[in-house]
Design a protein around this nucleic acid. Structure first.
Length: 515
DNA sequence: TCTGACACCCGTCGGTGGTG
DNA sequence: CACCACCGACGGGTGTCAGA
């Protein structure tokens, strides 16, 4: 083995690099330069690498490479000696700390930061432990800023990503901005912007929580709060799909047409839509409520308005609405008649429980998902066939043939339930009542009335009467802006229903002309 | 005309990604 | 941070058809 003892300088480094590049040393064995200036340092060439090694007593540690130039690349003699000096001290102190120190050093931390980090490795939390502690702390019954089950689900989803695992096992004090940013970028590239933003948001939340509440155990008191600078340099463009009333109504007429016939290409003569589900779609079109909340309307919470012949009142309890606020909406008679014309033809029409009972399940309400599927099928977005579970036994089976986008064929751009809310806002703005949309959409209502019902309450003979009284009181008192809501609801529903009447008679005229 | 087998269809469930 | 949209997967109910 060739060993040269001298002061390692650029000449030696270049020779070592040349050897490593070719993979050949003069005698084919390991080639070593030992440094006369810093006795514990050596530059060792073996195969295709030239490594910087610090030796002390019987142990040696690689602190970097002169070649290859990929990771931990160091070629300046002074830099190497400085690093070697620190590492040697650490080796004498506690050899176990060297690795973490080098991790921190090459992650770009300053000497003092990296040293602090190194001294903390054994007894401070990993990032994973910080996550767990944060979730535990924020879900405790007496937590100050509690998080809900959905948010816990969000945390778990975010931190369970594969690319995150390695970083999570690092001690939190050693995690760097670069670590988190590379996870963020990977997720952005392979998943999407929203999950990538969550990486940043939740990492920041976790480190903040631990630094604030468990600084000692997490070790985060020894580190600058670099996570405050974490950022996601992109944003999600807000959607701006806004179907015109004409398109909405054309879609509704199309859906209505398929109440009595199968959709194109279907192998069986099953009607494309069912009245109960269509009633749900009409309900959402005419009220523009959030789909899930809108469909969970209880049957007894639609009441006649004692103060008006032209409206009904619909009410949602606070636990159904976003932000936990009760909501009352006046429904113009004309609109309710439209909805009801389909509603009363539903399979479970007249349900005591739900205003919009499911077509399928007894005792359940029609779901937003089911309503949405009407649009989904009309656009031909549903899968062509399910995979056959059993081998066909030569029997001729009806086959589904084509998938057509009926909306496109009718010149309608794809729209979905949430888009209705933008259409409503536009129509009301155009009609000079910009506040109308806000009150209908329940963006900013503060109402504390109790609408929860107990079973025994419902047993009472005069329940419906009492219920009506309570909803009315809520509608007219307090912060429900009932007059504004009435005006806004009338403008919107009239606009939709006028267009419906227009298109319907136009259609009838076309049919007549064809005969 | 009846019956049973089969696979189809609509609406539901639940997970993932997006939104305000 | 708490909701929403979207969509794959699936199941109960049912139309279809061959054969009795």
């Amino acid at each position: 083995m060739a060993t040269e003892k001298l002061i390692i300088g650029d000449t030696e480094i270049n020779r070592a690099i040349a050897m490593a590049k070719s993979g050949e040393t003069p005698d084919g064995k390991i080639f070593i330069f030992t440094d006369e200036k810093f006795t514990n340092l050596r530059l060792q060439v073996q195969a295709k690498t030239a490594s910087w090694i610090v030796r002390w007593k019987s142990s040696s540690v690689t602190i970097g490479y002169a070649w290859p130039a990929k990771k931990r690349h160091i070629t300046a003699p002074s830099t190497v000696r400085k690093l070697a000096d620190t590492v040697l001290d650490l080796m004498k102190d506690d050899p176990d700390k060297v690795k973490s120190y080098l991790d921190a050093h090459f992650a770009g931390q300053s000497k003092s930061e990296a040293l602090k980090a190194a001294h903390k490795t054994a007894d401070t939390w990993t990032l994973r432990e910080c996550v767990e502690q944060t979730i535990d702390g924020k879900t405790a019954p007496d937590a100050k800023h509690k998080i809900g089950a959905n948010t816990v689900k969000d945390y778990r989803g975010t931190f369970s990503r594969d690319v995150f695992q390695k970083v999570l096992d690092k001690p939190a004090v050693l995690v760097t901005r670069g670590d988190i940013e590379s996870v963020r970028d990977h997720v952005k590239k392979h998943v999407g912007a929203s999950p990538a933003i969550k990486i940043i948001t939740y990492t920041r939340a976790v480190l903040d929580y631990c630094a604030r509440n468990h600084a000692g155990q997490s070790g985060l008191d020894k580190v600058d709060a670099w996570w405050h600078f974490l950022n996601a340099p992109f944003e999600i463009k807000p959607r701006n799909r806004r179907p015109e009333i004409e398109a909405i109504v054309a879609t509704m007429l199309l859906a209505e047409e398929y109440l009595t016939k199968p959709l194109p290409g279907r192998a069986q003569g099953v009607n494309g839509t069912n009245p109960g589900t269509l009633a749900g779609l009409w309900w959402l079109v005419l009220t523009c409520q959030r789909a899930a909340a809108g469909m969970s309307l209880l049957a007894h919470d639609v009441v006649t308005d004692p103060d008006s012949n032209e409206f009904l009142l619909a009410a949602w309890a606070e636990d159904v609405m976003k932000a936990g606020q009760a909501h009352v909406l006046p429904i113009p008679d004309r609109a309710w008649a439209m909805i009801n014309s389909f509603r009363e033809k539903g399979r479970h029409a007249g349900s005591q429980e739900w205003a919009f009972p499911s077509e399928r399940k007894k005792d359940a309400h029609a779901t937003a998902s089911g309503v949405y599927r009407i649009l989904y099928r009309l656009a031909g977005r549903d899968a062509l066939i399910q995979e056959a579970k059993v081998e066909r036994k030569g029997k001729k089976v009806p086959e589904r043939t084509e998938r057509r986008d009926l909306l496109k064929e009718a010149g309608i751009d794809w729209w979905s339930l949430h888009d209705l809310r933008r259409s409503l806002t536009k129509v009301l703005d155009d009609n000079g009542i910009p506040g109308g949309a806000t009150v209908i959409l329940a963006h900013d209502i503060h109402e504390k009335s109790e609408l929860a019902v107990t079973a025994s309450e419902r047993e009472r003979e005069d329940f419906q009467k009492l219920r009506t009284a309570r909803i009315t009181k809520m509608a007219y008192g307090g912060a429900q802006y009932i007059a504004l809501k009435k005006e806004a609801m009338r403008i919107w529903t009239d606009a939709v229903l006028d267009e419906y009447d227009r298109q319907k008679s136009e259609k009838a005229a076309t049919l007549e002309a064809a005969e």
